[in-house]
């Protein structure tokens, strides 16, 4: 766990934590005030939480959580302030469709093939549809975006879900000033 300038200290905010599964179910539905810090686990930068309302102040860190078990909802995506407009190479990948086995495996294998790093991942439902949202980072300078979009689209088609790869600014501009 790091706490340098890139990692913000966030103000306390309210977040719905649905389930946490790590070996055992830690709790049922929480409505907690949490203060988040960031930790890195297997290249997945996950927002983690410090529980305020529970008896003891828990900070869970240094956990080797396999990606498959990340079934809790990560509610916020973070940016560092120094990333100017249009200069970031981060993309929001949304996967929407009927839930079935192998969606995450299929999608992430394509991403691995294109050397696309997952910065953040979350899962929720929209109108009863399985919805996975990933914030991904592309480091290669000569990255072929259209080929990646096509491969992701084809994989989505195979899995029966709709996959969109959009630059993060599409969301940042609409919802933030």
């Amino acid at each position: 766990m790091k706490n340098n300038s890139r990692l913000f200290r966030f103000s306390i905010f309210v977040c719905k934590l649905f389930r946490i599964i790590y070996g055992h179910i830690l709790s049922n539905v929480f409505k907690l005030c949490i203060q988040s810090t960031l930790i890195y686990i297997q290249n997945v930068k996950i927002i983690f939480s410090r529980f305020i309302k529970t008896q003891s102040l828990k900070i869970i860190h240094n956990l080797q959580i396999p990606a498959e078990s990340l079934t809790f909802t990560v509610n916020y995506i973070f940016y560092s302030k120094d990333e100017g407009i249009m200069t970031s190479s981060r993309f929001v990948i949304t996967v929407i469709g009927g839930d079935k086995v192998g969606i995450v495996a299929g999608i992430t294998s394509i991403m691995a093939r294109f050397n696309v790093n997952i910065v953040d991942i979350s899962q929720t439902t929209m109108q009863d549809l399985f919805t996975m949202i990933m914030l991904a980072e592309i480091k290669d300078r000569d990255f072929d975006l259209s080929a990646f979009q096509k491969a992701m689209g084809d994989e989505g088609h195979r899995l029966g879900v709709e996959v969109k790869v959009q630059h993060e600014d599409a969301f940042r501009f609409m919802h933030r000033i």
């Binding site: 909802t73 509610n75 916020y76 995506i77 973070f78 940016y79 302030k81 929001v92 949304t94 929407i96 979350s122 929720t124 929209m126 919805t131 949202i133 969109k164 993060e168 599409a170 969301f171 940042r172 609409m174 919802h175 933030r176």
Partner: peptide, 13 residues
């Protein structure tokens, strides 16, 4: 800066 998944889904919708 934060973007909530609900905001992402709002845009997608």
């Amino acid at each position: 800066m934060l973007i909530h998944p609900e905001e992402i889904l709002e845009t997608i919708q």
